[in-house]
Design a protein around this nucleic acid. Structure first.
Length: 111
DNA sequence: AACCTGACTTCGG
DNA sequence: TCCGAAGCCAGGT
């Protein structure tokens, strides 16, 4: 097997993966990167979202960091993301964290 | 071509 | 549990 995946660029695949995240579930940057073929490209995933989340109509709000927190800074989309997630039924604890055991997307089960 | 940056992750103290 | 340092990747400048 090749280390190179398909002819499709990693960026393209990342976008597809994000589109597959089900409603009411969340995924971490590293997880998305892993499913897309590069488990170490978490930072790249973030970069892709930053550059083209709106225009490609991606559910960017379902992507969070490993700690179960929103990575955006307050005033720069943080509030918006939290609101979108709560609307989907995702719960935040007192410290603003999400229970990954419960809301993390499982790519293998599709749930 | 080289250097910088970022919505990250993991490990050690 | 929290903080700092190191590792990794691709696009911008």
């Amino acid at each position: 097997m090749n280390r190179l995946q398909d002819d499709e660029s990693f960026s393209r695949r990342v976008k597809d993966v994000i589109k597959c995240i089900p409603y009411g579930k969340v995924a971490t940057y590293g997880q998305v990167a892993s499913v897309a073929g590069n488990y170490r490209a978490a930072r790249q995933v973030a970069w892709i979202l930053h550059s083209s989340s709106e225009k490609d109509n991606l559910p960017w709000h379902r992507v969070i960091n490993r700690k179960g927190e929103i990575s955006l800074q307050p005033g720069c989309g943080f509030e918006k993301q939290k609101q979108l997630l709560e609307k989907e039924g995702v719960k935040f604890d007192r410290r603003g964290r999400i229970d990954l055991e419960r809301f993390l997307w499982n790519p293998e089960n599709g749930i």
